[in-house]
Computed example of a mutant assay.
Amino acid sequence: MRAPIVLLHGWACPASYWNPVAGLLREAGREVLNLDLPGYGTPLEAGFEWTVENVAAVFALELSGRSPVHWVGHSLGGSIAATIAARYPRTTASLTLVGMVPVAPSAAAEEKLRRLFGGPGAPDEDAAEEMLAAWFRGGEEPQGEDRERFLAPFRLPPAVVRRSMEAGITGAAPDVPDLVSVRTLVVTGTRDGTRTPDAVKEFLLGHSAWSHELIMDAGHMVHWERPEACADALLRHVARAEAG
């Protein structure tokens, strides 16, 4: 039986933005699990400390009965997926990082996040709109019901938005990339500004065993803007992992 593909969403993002890719993967005969990060689908448990390491431990335990699985994470979800692959290798058949490599975001990106979402109160609509513009920069932003889909997570309890943002800025621990032993794919868009092209290139030069798929005319939401290209890359990647 082939391993499931597990999708982890990013900070302030809806798990449903994976739906176009998930549908294509299911059409190809794959089992897909689309998980909510803590606080995004159900309320946070009292006392839960929102860190990449803690969330990785939760998911590794939850999926231990289905292991190994193909972990796929976008942005913050990528930091969590990489941490699972590094700390819990028996759970992992392959790893795919979408819209990121496990290095710190640019100083400009961090400054914007803390300015817009670092306070104790709920962010206003203008802050959410500014993030959408950054995520889809140079491309076509979602409209109508799809736009509401992307704006809704910013209305979650402020503590969830703020704590998960801090986890996203902190990212995976420095030792994580070198502990990943499974076949790994990085998928980025040519318009993505959260990790500069030079930062991605420099990271991959130091991790020559990792594969890279650069998707043309896509920003940080590469899987939403170009779902066919992302699904094709994923299917090729998991097939190679299962064959190898």
Rank of each mutant, 00 (worst) to 15 (best):
G99R: 07
E145C: 07
E111R: 13
M1I: 08
G73V: 04
R114N: 06
A85E: 05
W50M: 13
L214W: 11
V58M: 08
G65M: 05
A82V: 08
E140W: 05
V161G: 12
A218L: 05
A82P: 03
E111P: 04
G244H: 08
H237G: 04
L37D: 02
R147D: 01
G118M: 08
R66K: 09
R26A: 07
T184G: 06
R191Y: 02
W71S: 00
H237F: 12
G171H: 05
G10M: 02
G206M: 02
G189V: 00
A152I: 14
G39A: 00
E53F: 03
V182Q: 09
L205N: 14
V238F: 06
F203M: 00
P89R: 10
D146N: 11
D178A: 07
A159S: 14
S16K: 02
T92L: 14
G10E: 02
G171D: 10
G171V: 09
R87Y: 10
A134G: 14
R147S: 05
I215Y: 04
E140R: 15
G23P: 03
W224Q: 12
A56P: 03
A167V: 00
A93C: 14
R30H: 15
A133M: 10
R162D: 07
V180A: 07
H212E: 15
D36M: 06
M100S: 10
L44Q: 07
V238P: 02
K112N: 11
E130C: 05
A127V: 09
A159L: 13
L44M: 11
E242Q: 06
V161P: 05
V69T: 01
G206S: 05
H237C: 07
M1A: 09
R155M: 15
V52P: 04
V187Y: 01
E62P: 00
F59M: 01
D126Q: 13
P14Y: 03
V101A: 09
D175Y: 00
E148R: 15
